[in-house]
Design a binder for these strands. Structure first.
Length: 508
RNA sequence: CGGGAUGUAGCGCAGCCCGGUAGCGCGCUCGGUUCGGGACCGAGAGGCCGGAGGUUCAAAUCCUCUCAUCCCGACCA
């Protein structure tokens, strides 16, 4: 008996957003919780997305002059202590290595032994350990700029974790650079933010708002923090990348000094910037639907599912031969610089089952190949960003072009949908009552569903920001760049003069 | 770390209130018929009921502790 489910994912986004998120990950087989508290196992389909993100970003980093290197996962406690704000910011979420050995406890088990003279912190970020190296590497202005990136894993002992969005261990890249002037470091900080926003929009199809963090959200130890913020389908904001101008703070604590062009010794100016596996969470929550994952073609692990359909052995032979020819035809295609991959799915399952399998995995195109296609020299193509029943018959001679062009079109279409969703849920608010109404849940049982982004005036006082956070759980996501936000007005909270609008939202 | 909820087969659940040694749907295996929106028939396999104590002749069921997950707070990429 047919199940006739309306949607492949239950519950739907509307019914229970966070449960929907978990189910999409499960249905697409991206990752699972491990037995290690707060840590995830990233499965092949999910890891392939990360590898695509890595590959593309790595190229962008190279093109902007950065070199990869690798630093220890263990940071001596004393290094960590050098930057006061930094310690304070991370102290509550550190994993600490205190012993180096296990010994037989005499009861068939093991006990820890070999206590270290100095505990190691498992890196929650690497400014201090990298700074120690940089202090040795940098002596002259001729050594600058020093542009280093590291791909690594990070541990932050989080209380509450969610797959991809917040896990105790996660994968990321962290860029660390050293410059001879304030201006050079600031240019670098902003340049890498541009790299991130460019990457997010062109590859992840994720529209982002670039801006600066307020004092309360600044990276511990930074002079200023810049970010890209994106809107998820529950209208909450997700910080998708950050770039920090560290001034001379870490140079002072790590002793990164150089002889400048005037022959004087001075502290260098540093930056750091990073994106993490959280981007996969952003992808999922920005684009997926009630039938599962929807992937922008440029980061999809594979782009085309080939699904042969047949009723008996004669048909099978003919269809498979035809299908393999198509598989061959689609080899070696590119969507811009992205190689297009196919998955040939002739598993002994009904065509419907194979179809739904790939729908849930978010593969961009499904090509059904049946007996009618063999005789018609054509195939049926369905695209993931449209209704699954909305299939198109494509002649074989047109297929190559069709696949490439449709993937390009889908990439744009997914970005445009996300842009439209964001603009529909972003509103200028100047009235305090309207602001509070906007963020008051319509349905108390589902406080997740609320207004969206509010673009409102803020006087610049932390007190106003704090009060709004206390009242509504809404924070200033960023002070956005762009002239369109600059105008005179009154602070949404206190009514005092404001020169700029900022982005308010509930956030992850 | 505080409040709430939930842990029973791979997944989703029932059974618990009122103790008597475990069941349903899906999935899985085998055989056959099927295959263009989640196929069907037949035959099977699979769980010491999250863990540890306790009460009892007897515990999935009652009590205590513990662990995990989810939701809500606090914190955060």
């Amino acid at each position: 008996m047919a199940k006739n489910k309306k949607t492949a994912i239950e519950p739907t986004r509307e019914d229970n957003y966070s449960e929907w998120y978990q189910q999409v990950i499960k249905a697409a087989d991206l990752a699972e919780n491990s037995d290690v508290r707060g840590c995830m196992v990233i499965k092949p389909w999910g890891y392939a997305i990360w590898e695509n993100i890595q590959r593309i970003l790595d190229t962008m980093f190279r093109e902007t002059g950065h070199k990869n290197a690798y630093f220890p996962i263990f940071i001596p406690k004393s290094y960590f202590e050098k930057e006061a704000e930094h310690v304070e910011g991370f102290a509550k979420e550190c994993a600490i290595v205190t012993h180096s050995r296990l010994e037989n406890d005499g009861h068939g088990g093991l006990k820890v032994a070999g206590e270290l003279t100095e505990p190691y912190i498992v890196r929650p970020t690497s400014e201090t350990i990298i700074g120690a190296s940089f202090a040795k590497w940098v002596n002259s202005y001729r050594d600058l700029p020093l542009l280093i990136n590291q791909w690594a894993n990070i541990v932050r002992w989080e209380m509450r974790t969610r797959l991809f969005l917040r896990t105790a261990e996660f994968l990321w890249q962290e860029g660390h650079t050293v410059h001879e002037s304030y201006d050079d470091a600031m240019v670098e900080t902003r340049k890498m933010l541009d790299v991130y926003s460019d990457f997010a929009e062109r590859y992840l199809a994720l529209p982002v708002i670039k801006g600066e963090k307020t004092d309360s959200e600044r990276f511990p130890g930074a002079v200023s923090t810049y970010c890209i913020e994106s809107m998820m389908q529950d209208k909450k904001a997700l910080q998708s990348g950050t770039s920090h101008f560290l001034g001379q703070n870490f140079a002072k604590s790590s002793g990164i000094k150089f002889q400048n062009r005037a022959g004087e010794i001075e502290h260098a100016w540093t930056t750091s910037w990073g994106v993490s596996t959280r981007l996969i969470g952003a992808l999922i929550m920005a684009h997926s639907d009630d039938n599962g994952l929807v992937l922008p073609p440029k980061v999809a692990p594979a782009h085309v599912a080939l699904i042969p359909i047949y009723r008996n052995d004669e048909e099978k032979a003919a269809v498979l031969e035809f299908a393999h020819k198509i598989e061959l035809q689609l080899k070696g295609l590119y969507l811009d610089e992205i190689k297009i991959y196919s998955e040939f799915d002739d598993r002994d399952l009904t065509s419907s089952e194979r179809n739904w399998y790939w729908i849930k995995k978010g593969i961009p195109l499904r090509i059904e190949i049946g007996p009618r296609d063999v005789s018609g020299n054509s195939v049926m193509v369905a695209r993931r960003d449209k209704d699954g029943r909305d299939k198109e018959s494509i002649a074989i001679e047109d297929l190559t072009n069709y696949v490439v062009q449709t993937l390009a079109n889908m990439q744009d279409n997914i970005l445009n949908s996300a842009l439209e969703f964001r603009s529909q849920n972003t509103i200028k608010i100047d009235d305090t009552k309207q602001f509070y109404d906007f963020y008051t849940p319509r349905n108390v049982a589902q406080p997740e569903i609320h207004g969206g982004f509010a673009v409102s005036h803020w006087c610049g006082e932390s007190a106003c920001e704090e009060q709004i956070k206390t009242d509504l759980k809404v924070t200033i996501r960023c002070i956005p760049f762009g002239d369109e936000y600059i105008e005179e007005g009154e602070c949404i909270k206190c009514g005092k003069v404001s020169h700029k609008r900022v982005i308010f939202a509930k956030s992850y």
